[in-house]
Amino acid sequence: MINVEQMAAVLEALPDPAFILSRSGKYVAVFGGSDARYYHDGTGLIGLYIPDLIQPEKSDWFLKQIDRALESRKLVVEEYELSNSDVKGLPNEGPEAPIWFEGRIQALNFLVDGEEVVLWVASNISERHALEIKLRALSDTDQLTGLFNRRKLERDLTLHYDKFVRYSVPTSILMFDLDNLKKINDSKGHHVGDEMILTVANACRSAIRKTDTACRFGGDEFVIALSNTGHDHAHLFAQRLNQYFRKELSRFNVGDTFATASIGVTTMISADRSYEDTLKRADQALYKAKGLGKDRIVSL
Rank of each mutant, 00 (worst) to 15 (best):
residue 97 A to Y: 14
residue 84 N to K: 05
residue 295 D to R: 06
residue 158 T to Y: 02
residue 211 T to G: 03
residue 67 D to Y: 02
residue 63 L to G: 02
residue 171 T to A: 13
residue 235 H to Y: 13
residue 234 A to Y: 03
residue 149 N to E: 01
residue 83 S to F: 04
residue 254 V to A: 05
residue 160 H to C: 13
residue 58 K to G: 06
residue 150 R to K: 10
residue 152 K to Y: 12
residue 131 L to W: 15
residue 205 R to L: 14
residue 178 L to M: 13
residue 44 G to V: 00
residue 203 A to G: 09
residue 234 A to F: 08
residue 169 V to N: 11
residue 87 V to A: 09
residue 17 P to D: 11
residue 80 Y to G: 05
residue 103 G to N: 10
residue 135 L to V: 10
residue 158 T to A: 03
residue 107 A to F: 12
residue 198 L to R: 07
residue 269 I to T: 15
residue 76 V to M: 07
residue 42 G to R: 06
residue 89 G to R: 12
residue 187 S to I: 10
residue 16 D to V: 05
residue 72 S to K: 15
residue 61 W to T: 00
residue 240 R to V: 02
residue 118 V to Y: 09
residue 157 L to P: 01
residue 202 N to C: 05
residue 144 L to A: 00
residue 229 T to I: 08
residue 31 F to P: 00
residue 83 S to P: 06
residue 124 N to G: 06
residue 256 D to F: 04
residue 234 A to N: 10
residue 174 L to C: 00
residue 257 T to N: 03
residue 1 M to D: 14
residue 50 I to R: 00
residue 134 K to T: 15
residue 52 D to M: 07
residue 298 V to E: 04
residue 11 L to P: 07
residue 272 D to R: 00
residue 104 R to C: 05
residue 5 E to Y: 11
residue 271 A to C: 06
residue 252 F to P: 03
residue 68 R to T: 12
residue 221 E to Q: 11
residue 280 K to E: 14
residue 28 V to L: 07
residue 194 D to H: 09
residue 163 K to N: 10
residue 79 E to D: 14
residue 274 S to H: 07
residue 251 R to G: 01
residue 232 D to V: 15
residue 66 I to P: 02
residue 167 Y to D: 13
residue 91 P to M: 10
residue 65 Q to H: 12
residue 300 L to C: 05
residue 59 S to T: 08
residue 129 H to G: 02
residue 250 S to W: 01
residue 124 N to H: 13
residue 59 S to H: 10
residue 179 D to L: 07
residue 212 D to T: 07
residue 64 K to Y: 11
residue 179 D to S: 12
residue 69 A to E: 00
residue 289 A to I: 04
residue 277 D to S: 12
residue 9 A to I: 10
residue 136 R to F: 08
residue 134 K to Y: 11
residue 242 N to V: 03
residue 256 D to I: 05
residue 145 T to F: 00
residue 142 D to Q: 11
residue 34 S to H: 05
residue 107 A to D: 12
residue 130 A to S: 14
residue 19 F to E: 04
residue 22 S to G: 15
residue 237 F to K: 06
residue 153 L to H: 00
residue 197 I to A: 04
